[in-house]
């Protein structure tokens, strides 16, 4: 075991770049997609980090790169203080037991030709976790844990509903007895009524087994229910990370503010009066990200400085970081934009 001070998962300066095939003759003119570009996160044991962002911002790629399921271009990923990026495929295989994944699409993530028993036994079989004769009982136990009847064992995935399949996927991840699970939009494909059941199941399992989650989602409301810490991603980078309370009550980055203002409030009176920040335009292509701050093309408070200078992720409060030149200060409309003066508001 590692010391209690080291986080379970520490990702430092993770980069995942994909080469696009060249457009010119003989493959010249190759372009690079920077799907993940210098991302750093830490998750303490037993905690949940919510990773939010629009589709295409690289959040799923981040999850897969951490599990070494996507090719890593640079940076380090440490699980239990052990760097995974330098391990060979064979060295990685036994460690994979400690880190599992639950997928978004419960239809694609289960082999249609295997029975539930085969699916859930697989991790036990691969890592030789239980003696042969205890395996059936173990599978039944896992199915009970995720709320499925033992009679599900001999059935095939197509006989189950989306929520039930997601439970099978969770049982498969649990069968490996992991420390860390990447939840890659586990409820996005489900009905809202089923979503809360699955979320509650995930929370209960976390308490019961001391699991650590990386919860990937595009829905801030769902992330708010699940996470201790939240990181907001935009174009392959983290733009703001904070505790759940800080992020939801005092978002600093204009992108976070826009995302939060898109979450409807369940009271028509307040909802009608609420000021909404509406973003215009599309997410820029990660092949040609904008200069300076990547967000300046859509930012409601962008200034000249943002077009030139890329902001770094600054600490603006305890455990609260944001990468915006104006973060931590008053809204820039109130600010005399004098060159050379500090942008941080004086009290």
């Amino acid at each position: 075991m590692t010391s209690t001070t080291a986080p379970l998962l520490a990702v430092d300066d993770l980069r995942v770049h994909f080469q696009l095939p060249g457009t010119g003759w003989f493959g010249s003119g190759k372009q690079t997609v920077k799907a993940v570009d210098g991302l750093s996160i830490q998750i303490e044991r037993g905690q949940t980090l919510g990773l939010v962002g629009e589709s295409g911002c690289g959040k799923s790629t981040t999850g897969r790169a951490i599990l070494r399921l996507a090719p890593i271009t640079g940076g380090t990923v440490r699980l239990n203080s052990r760097d995974l990026t330098t391990l060979s495929a064979a060295e990685l295989r036994p460690i994979r037991r400690q880190m599992q994944i639950v997928f978004q699409d419960p239809f694609a993530s289960l082999n249609p030709r295997h029975t539930v028993e085969q699916i859930v036994t697989e991790p036990i079989w691969v890592h030789n976790l239980r003696p042969e004769r205890e395996r059936v009982a173990r599978v039944r136990e896992l199915l009970t844990l995720v709320g499925l009847p033992g009679s599900a064992m001999g059935r095939f995935p197509h006989e189950f509903s989306g929520g039930q399949r997601q439970r099978i996927g969770i049982a498969r991840a649990l069968a490996a007895e992991p420390d860390f699970i990447v939840l890659d939009e586990p409820v996005s494909a489900l009905d809202v009524s089923i979503q809360s059941q699955i979320l509650r199941l995930l929370l209960d399992l976390q308490v019961q087994f001391g699991l650590t989650y990386l919860f990937i989602a595009h829905d801030l409301a769902v992330v708010g229910q699940m996470s201790d810490q939240v990181a907001v991603m935009y174009l392959g980078r983290i733009v703001e990370t904070a505790t759940r309370e800080a992020l939801y009550q005092a978002p600093q980055h204009p992108y976070t503010q826009a995302l939060l203002s898109a979450v409807p409030y369940p009271d028509p009176e307040i909802e009608a009066k609420r000021r909404r920040v509406i973003l215009t335009g599309e997410v820029p292509s990660p092949v040609n990200p904008p200069s300076g701050c990547h967000f300046h093309t859509r930012c409601p408070i962008a200034a000249d400085r943002c077009r030139v200078e890329a902001p770094s992720l600054r600490t603006i409060g305890p455990g609260h970081q944001a990468s915006c030149h104006f973060a931590g200060g008053p809204p820039p409309e109130l600010q005399g934009a004098k060159p050379g003066t500090s942008l941080r508001a004086s009290p």
């Binding site: 994944i101 997928f103 694609a108 498969r172």
Partner: peptide
């Protein structure tokens, strides 16, 4: 590219299996 193949890889199964 299917998710269940990725899942098998995440489990630590060898490419041949």
């Amino acid at each position: 590219e299917r998710d269940f193949v990725t899942a098998a890889r995440a489990l630590g199964m060898s490419e041949w299996s």
